[in-house]
Amino acid sequence: MTPTSPETVSPTAPGRPTGDVAGVPVLAAREVSVRFGGLRALSDVSIEVAPASIVGLVGPNGAGKTTLFGVLSGLLRPSSGRVSLRGEDVTEASPQLRARKGLARTFQQPELFMGLTVREHLVLAHRVRFARRRLLTDMFNPRALFGSKASEDERVDALLELLDLTRVAHAPVAALPLGTSRLVEVGRALAGQPDVILLDEPLSGLDLRASENLTEVFRRVVANPDHQVSLLMVEHDVAAVLALSSTIFVLDFGELIAQGTPEHIRNDPAVRAAYLGEEPPVSRTGTDLAFNGTDAS
């Protein structure tokens, strides 16, 4: 689509004509609020994800990150606010419709299809996006009964290779360790070639090597010139987020307390307060900010 350099983080940059498609964020939430009974899980949160960029979403436990993902992906209905996908309002759209329009996500607790193998996850996601009719017509086609298994898209195999999943491609996912499950989640999300992927703590539970590998994968898919993908990533490993993202949003108690470049976030007193629960001493430099590295649980 429109060529946009990965560095473009501010779609509302001055001087850009408003009608320009390049200025439209792939994904945007405007003043989204969610209530669970008396609890305000999100209050008037607005975020934007520019094309072909990695955007971080951080915040302490219970800040509302997963809730925001629920709203963005359509699984949760906000009590107010709008969500748009490539400029199109999708607030009322079902999750499956949003998926068809190019949105994918992973889950904090992997939601895998226990009866399927790793490869089948990717195959299914790929077919859902690119051969939708097969969902309904395939059962009348005896090819499934007699057909060969090897003929699947090279896209799926390339993806398995990319994520280092080839070895377990035919293993049922029920038997996989948590880290590998996360990779399968990512693979399933990527298999549909979405425009934007919501990643809910993709790195937690991965060992160092796998984590570095996956980070590298993220860089590569975003930099891929053939297909523009944006990533919105929730991650407790703040160092990784700061290193990867071009823009970062910080949530605390359901409110957006900061947003901006990694440099900006590192030095933001509100963020430090939210993470440390106190006003940081003025003399400290931003780089040794001691974010509490809480894990997923």
Partner: peptide
């Protein structure tokens, strides 16, 4: 059968 949320967000 195994995960309605994931099925939905996969586009099913």
């Amino acid at each position: 059968r195994w995960s309605e949320p994931a099925a939905k967000t996969t586009g099913i």
